[in-house]
Protein backbone atom coordinates (compact mmCIF):
# COMPACT_ATOMS: atom_id res chain seq x y z
CA UNK A 1 0.00 0.00 0.00
CA UNK A 2 1.06 3.55 -0.66
CA UNK A 3 1.91 5.24 2.61
CA UNK A 4 4.28 7.84 1.20
CA UNK A 5 2.48 10.82 2.73
CA UNK A 6 2.54 9.04 6.06
CA UNK A 7 6.24 8.24 5.71
CA UNK A 8 6.99 11.87 4.89
CA UNK A 9 5.28 13.10 8.01
CA UNK A 10 6.84 10.44 10.22
CA UNK A 11 10.35 11.11 8.91
CA UNK A 12 10.01 14.86 9.25
CA UNK A 13 8.79 14.52 12.82
CA UNK A 14 11.59 12.14 13.68
CA UNK A 15 14.15 14.67 12.48
CA UNK A 16 12.80 17.49 14.62
CA UNK A 17 13.27 18.23 18.29
CA UNK A 18 10.39 18.68 20.68
CA UNK A 19 9.97 22.41 20.36
CA UNK A 20 10.20 22.30 16.57
CA UNK A 21 7.67 19.48 16.28
CA UNK A 22 5.20 21.66 18.01
CA UNK A 23 5.75 24.51 15.59
CA UNK A 24 5.70 22.13 12.64
CA UNK A 25 2.24 21.05 13.72
CA UNK A 26 1.06 24.64 13.89
CA UNK A 27 2.55 25.21 10.42
CA UNK A 28 0.62 22.25 9.01
CA UNK A 29 -2.53 23.75 10.50
CA UNK A 30 -1.88 27.19 9.02
CA UNK A 31 -0.83 26.02 5.57
CA UNK A 32 -3.17 26.89 2.68
CA UNK A 33 -4.38 23.76 0.97
CA UNK A 34 -5.36 23.01 -2.58
CA UNK A 35 -8.63 21.56 -1.39
CA UNK A 36 -9.60 23.42 1.78
CA UNK A 37 -12.22 21.94 4.05
CA UNK A 38 -15.60 23.15 2.77
CA UNK A 39 -17.39 25.53 5.12
CA UNK A 40 -20.73 23.76 4.64
CA UNK A 41 -19.29 20.46 5.82
CA UNK A 42 -18.60 21.88 9.28
CA UNK A 43 -21.89 20.47 10.49
CA UNK A 44 -23.23 17.91 12.90
CA UNK A 45 -23.17 15.15 10.30
CA UNK A 46 -19.41 15.41 9.81
CA UNK A 47 -18.52 15.93 13.42
CA UNK A 48 -16.30 13.40 15.10
CA UNK A 49 -17.63 13.05 18.65
CA UNK A 50 -15.59 12.63 21.77
CA UNK A 51 -12.90 15.22 21.12
CA UNK A 52 -12.02 18.15 23.31
CA UNK A 53 -12.18 20.42 20.31
CA UNK A 54 -14.53 20.03 17.37
CA UNK A 55 -13.21 17.83 14.61
CA UNK A 56 -14.96 17.44 11.28
CA UNK A 57 -14.05 14.73 8.82
CA UNK A 58 -15.16 14.50 5.24
CA UNK A 59 -15.02 11.14 3.55
CA UNK A 60 -15.06 10.47 -0.21
CA UNK A 61 -14.66 7.28 -2.18
CA UNK A 62 -13.04 7.25 -5.59
CA UNK A 63 -12.48 3.96 -7.42
CA UNK A 64 -12.73 1.98 -4.21
CA UNK A 65 -10.19 4.15 -2.45
CA UNK A 66 -10.99 6.30 0.56
CA UNK A 67 -10.12 9.98 0.74
CA UNK A 68 -10.42 12.06 3.87
CA UNK A 69 -10.27 15.72 4.67
CA UNK A 70 -10.30 17.01 8.20
CA UNK A 71 -10.75 20.24 10.06
CA UNK A 72 -10.79 21.45 13.65
CA UNK A 73 -11.48 24.72 15.42
CA UNK A 74 -8.30 24.23 17.45
CA UNK A 75 -5.04 24.88 15.60
CA UNK A 76 -3.04 22.06 17.10
CA UNK A 77 -5.80 19.54 16.53
CA UNK A 78 -6.16 20.80 12.98
CA UNK A 79 -2.49 20.03 12.48
CA UNK A 80 -3.00 16.54 13.87
CA UNK A 81 -6.14 15.77 11.91
CA UNK A 82 -4.56 17.08 8.72
CA UNK A 83 -1.60 14.81 9.26
CA UNK A 84 -3.90 11.86 9.85
CA UNK A 85 -6.19 12.46 6.87
CA UNK A 86 -3.24 13.11 4.54
CA UNK A 87 -1.47 10.02 5.81
CA UNK A 88 -4.30 7.59 5.37
CA UNK A 89 -6.06 8.85 2.25
CA UNK A 90 -5.94 6.84 -0.96
CA UNK A 91 -6.16 3.43 0.72
CA UNK A 92 -8.64 0.65 0.05
CA UNK A 93 -10.94 -0.63 2.79
CA UNK A 94 -8.74 -3.68 3.31
CA UNK A 95 -5.60 -1.54 3.49
CA UNK A 96 -7.17 0.90 5.89
CA UNK A 97 -8.15 -1.98 8.16
CA UNK A 98 -4.46 -2.88 8.42
CA UNK A 99 -3.44 0.48 9.81
CA UNK A 100 -2.72 -0.02 13.48
CA UNK A 101 -2.06 2.04 16.54
CA UNK A 102 1.64 1.49 15.93
CA UNK A 103 1.38 3.56 12.76
CA UNK A 104 -0.26 6.32 14.75
CA UNK A 105 2.35 6.09 17.47
CA UNK A 106 5.07 6.85 14.98
CA UNK A 107 3.40 10.15 14.13
CA UNK A 108 3.40 10.98 17.74
CA UNK A 109 6.79 11.70 19.07
CA UNK A 110 7.74 13.64 22.12
CA UNK A 111 5.96 16.94 22.01
CA UNK A 112 2.66 15.37 21.16
CA UNK A 113 1.65 14.34 24.60
CA UNK A 114 -0.28 11.27 25.62
CA UNK A 115 -3.62 13.00 25.65
CA UNK A 116 -3.26 13.97 22.03
CA UNK A 117 -2.07 10.47 21.26
CA UNK A 118 -5.36 9.16 22.59
CA UNK A 119 -7.12 11.69 20.35
CA UNK A 120 -5.20 10.45 17.33
CA UNK A 121 -6.07 6.84 18.10
CA UNK A 122 -9.71 7.92 18.18
CA UNK A 123 -9.21 9.65 14.82
CA UNK A 124 -7.83 6.49 13.26
CA UNK A 125 -10.79 4.48 14.52
CA UNK A 126 -13.12 7.14 13.17
CA UNK A 127 -11.52 7.03 9.71
CA UNK A 128 -11.76 3.25 9.73
CA UNK A 129 -15.38 3.39 10.78
CA UNK A 130 -16.29 5.89 8.05
CA UNK A 131 -14.63 3.60 5.52
CA UNK A 132 -16.45 0.53 6.83
CA UNK A 133 -13.14 -0.96 7.86
CA UNK A 134 -14.28 -1.27 11.46
CA UNK A 135 -17.60 -2.09 13.06
CA UNK A 136 -19.47 0.71 14.85
CA UNK A 137 -20.47 0.65 18.49
CA UNK A 138 -23.82 1.70 19.92
CA UNK A 139 -23.70 5.03 21.72
CA UNK A 140 -24.66 5.56 25.37
CA UNK A 141 -27.95 6.20 27.13
CA UNK A 142 -29.81 9.32 26.04
CA UNK A 143 -28.47 9.07 22.50
CA UNK A 144 -31.21 8.96 19.92
Amino acid sequence: MDLSAYEDYAETLEALDDEMRFEYLLDIAKKKRREPFPEEAMDEAHLMHGCMSRVWILHDIDEDRHYFRGHSDAAIVKGLVTMMTDSFSGLTTAELAQITLDHVRRLNLGALTTQRQVGMMAMLKHLQKLAGARPGFPSGPGAA
Binding site: F22, M52, S53, D73, I76, V77
Partner: peptide
Protein backbone atom coordinates in the same frame (compact mmCIF):
# COMPACT_ATOMS: atom_id res chain seq x y z
CA UNK B 1 -8.12 31.19 20.33
CA UNK B 2 -9.30 27.70 21.09
CA UNK B 3 -8.92 26.71 24.74
CA UNK B 4 -7.09 23.58 23.70
CA UNK B 5 -4.44 25.56 21.88
CA UNK B 6 -4.02 27.87 24.84
CA UNK B 7 -3.71 24.85 27.13
CA UNK B 8 -1.15 23.19 24.90
CA UNK B 9 1.02 26.29 24.79
CA UNK B 10 0.73 26.81 28.53
CA UNK B 11 1.76 23.18 28.90
CA UNK B 12 4.93 23.88 26.94
CA UNK B 13 5.70 26.63 29.48
CA UNK B 14 5.34 24.13 32.31
CA UNK B 15 1.94 25.47 33.30
CA UNK B 16 -0.56 22.64 33.81
CA UNK B 17 -4.19 23.66 33.39
CA UNK B 18 -7.29 21.85 32.28
CA UNK B 19 -9.09 22.73 29.08
CA UNK B 20 -12.39 21.56 27.72
CA UNK B 21 -15.89 21.26 29.14
Amino acid sequence: LHSMDVGAILDRQGVAVRVGH
